[in-house]
Design a protein around this nucleic acid. Sequence first.
DNA 1: TTGAAAGCGCTAACAA
DNA 2: TTGTTAGCGCTTTCAA
Lengths: 355, 355
Amino acid sequence: MTVTIKDIARETGKSITTVSRALHDYDDVSDSTKKLVRETAAEMGYTPNLLAQRLQKQRTETIGLILPTFGPRFADPFFSEFLAGVGNTAARYGYDLLVSTKAPGKEELAAYRQKVQGRQVDGFIVVRTRRHDPRIDYLRQAGVPFAVFGRVEGELDFPFVDEDGVDGMRQVAEHLIALGHRRIACIAPPPELMFAEYRLRGVKEALTEAELMIDEGYCATGDLTQHGGYKQANVLLDLPDPPSAIIAANDLMALGAMSAAQQRGLVVGRDIAITGFDDTPLAEHAHPPLTTVHQPIYQIGSVVCEMLLEILQGREPDQRQVLLKPTLIVRQSCGANHSVNGATVSIPKKEAPYT
Amino acid sequence: MTVTIKDIARETGKSITTVSRALHDYDDVSDSTKKLVRETAAEMGYTPNLLAQRLQKQRTETIGLILPTFGPRFADPFFSEFLAGVGNTAARYGYDLLVSTKAPGKEELAAYRQKVQGRQVDGFIVVRTRRHDPRIDYLRQAGVPFAVFGRVEGELDFPFVDEDGVDGMRQVAEHLIALGHRRIACIAPPPELMFAEYRLRGVKEALTEAELMIDEGYCATGDLTQHGGYKQANVLLDLPDPPSAIIAANDLMALGAMSAAQQRGLVVGRDIAITGFDDTPLAEHAHPPLTTVHQPIYQIGSVVCEMLLEILQGREPDQRQVLLKPTLIVRQSCGANHSVNGATVSIPKKEAPYT
DNA sequence: TTGAAAGCGCTAACAA
DNA sequence: TTGTTAGCGCTTTCAA
């Protein structure tokens, strides 16, 4: 049924060994036999059985990616692009990508173990790091190669790519402060996520420098979904002294916050400023378009995958730890400018909308 | 380094065969040896080498999923949820998921071939079908098991799950007609996609029944992204006699269309009706919330995966061909109702906004 | 330049 | 109830 190396051997009258070496272009095989072997292989439609090759080589040429899902409805515009970055890079190196989805927790860790011990992957890509990340602890201790999108608290002795969340959020907060905002609230990510720390810190640093009060009541925590952003924005807007600007920790929550504000009849970009983080395609086409921080997510996927692959091939990656400087993308949701059909018009802006 | 069955054999003084059978709970092994073997296996931290098992069994216990990407920026809120549905189901059956991303075309087909011939997968899940789908032709001809999300033109002799796009779009169009709309335009998907056919047909059937003219100029084609929806909506709105309602073929394009309309100062849900398809979480939190057709994407992923797995295990799936009846989700973007903080209020609606 | 033989880790037919 | 043996498809010493 399927053609094996043995069939080619029989067909050409050569030995299995010779066929194998001919196919791999060893230089101790005569050109004539090489030619013969290759031609018959092609004729017979031979393709190597990767399983057998891998068993022999003790390498799987597969990298694992276990996506942490939160809740059943896992519609993240973020991960699909990341996945494409990782996948395309892996394919370029001839590697396969083994993907699964698991909510953070025991089962998740078990999935890592299982893939390692079943020798199904050569290494892992880890995403969405937690402050103390059991996945990284495990991989480190087990000696399994891995590369990470994100950082953790404590020892950063592993290869990673991350965006500089502190810097990104500083830019956002400084921008809002420059626009005259004084009552700036934020919707933070779940605190166990490492990037929550950075993004929050960026906001706080900017506020402190501007000598603005940091009110704990102004800092809500959302679950990174639109719904979460919506709920938390409502909490903030219900405060006796509501904020004039809301910094959401990601685009999805910003969108939710926008819809909460709009439902109250507020005009986003005039009555209230709202900003996001990630610059997903959603941000550009939101209404109004969302001011946010750009994160080259496809590239990040690509680079983190490349790091891992270099390591797996025994090479030293160009850079082992990459911290990307993010770019602030100013659109209309913060009221800084308002572009209609390409023209930029400024919008009447109140200094302190609610006072 | 890693523990194999041989190590256990040596340790227990049993033969390799006995160990293997003990671990698999064969009933021709004495309880005492079973116990002994299992305990030592556990002690030594044994986990089977799946590669070896699979080579022997000639089954990979892996299913392939090659995502067709369109353009570099592939942020699809749709696929991640689908992926979760497929992935979780596969995991439940003990199957792995091999994922890659390829733009439709030669390389894509080559990827299928390579995975089949390298015996890396037992079967495939195919998504986003084209009218004449070379992937399905190939898999059919190669005798590789597969299950499909979507249908194709011609012979439907394979297992699939699909939503009834005709019905879904009929519901949308009929709803708009009932609301008094007479100038209904649509932004269709790329025509090579099979679901374009169904969704378009649904619209046309409803319009024909209502004895409304179907103007070719009223049917734009978008690339399923927000940007595409934005561009095409602008084309439609620039017409001398612009539509009073725009039916977009998916949520993303609907969102883009909304932002185009809003940029012109139109109030969506009052001056113009806009509808989507998919009911991604984006729809619910759009501003205004988007009237759309619900598609249980997680479930679809789960069911299509289950079908394939049943087939791979030699069983007959419960249902081989599933056509889901979609549900119309009426929100505010079509002007039918307008819900504020849970209360439903009707909005003044113009019969023919532009006349 | 080529081939025989061992072995990657496992399963399964067969014999004992 | 257990062990011997062969073999999945391949790579790689080692000898010829």
